[in-house]
Design a binder for these strands. Structure first.
Lengths: 104, 104
DNA sequence: GAGTAGTGCAACTCATAAGTTGCACTTAGG
DNA sequence: CCTAAGTGCAACTTATGAGTTGCACTACTC
């Protein structure tokens, strides 16, 4: 479960990829279109899109001869929920530890 | 707001740091103590702890001559909530875009 | 007060990721 | 058909991060 979670965080740990996600938030776009808005090359964007696609944060859609990408909101939601669950689990564990520590 | 979020994700995008967090979940520990449980050097762990501390996921506590670290569950919670909020915002935006697209 | 456990700092290697340039391939459109 | 827009692949440079070794410093402890 967690082994698929870490790469998602790694993907979200890059400013440029957030820029791409933000740009895609205003509508699906191709790598070439994104290259017009962002201060990086098309190929750099293509690599980032590959990374984002790998972890399921983005999805390719062929439209004619171009490949547009759309944000998969569900992946973001799922990641948030799993992180929240982990946080709750941690809180419980930490609370238990503190209780043990106090009883000493 | 978001500018402090990305480094947190970058910090969470490393397996070794998750190992450290998991180990710290069983009780506060020093870098030397962690080095006994994990297959990496104390200095490597110290660096990871510095990164985790930088983003507020971990907190140092001096106990005599050693420095123990404890997990800050609140940071994990806050990160989850912010990610969830972003996901919701995104869903709304994507829904709006789809509605516009359908009306064409 | 001497020894030792624990920490901190610095320099180094090594791997990987980000970004670039260049070229080949494909496919819509006049 | 033939041009051009869009994409894909490959090689390269560069920067950064993970990990190591070595040594110096601090502060408990006996």
């Amino acid at each position: 479960m967690t082994d698929t979670l870490v790469p998602v965080f790694a993907a979200l740990g890059d400013e440029t990829r957030w820029s791409i996600l933000a740009a895609l938030g205003e509508g699906d776009a191709s790598a070439s279109a994104l290259a017009g808005r962002l201060p990086v090359t098309r190929q750099a964007i293509a690599k980032h899109l590959a990374v984002l696609q790998e972890v399921g944060l983005v999805e390719p859609v062929r439209v004619g001869r171009e490949v547009r990408f759309r944000v998969v909101g569900a992946t973001l939601d799922a990641t948030a929920r799993r992180l929240e669950a982990l946080g709750a689990e941690w809180d419980a564990r930490l609370a238990a530890i503190r209780q043990i520590a106090e009883s000493l």
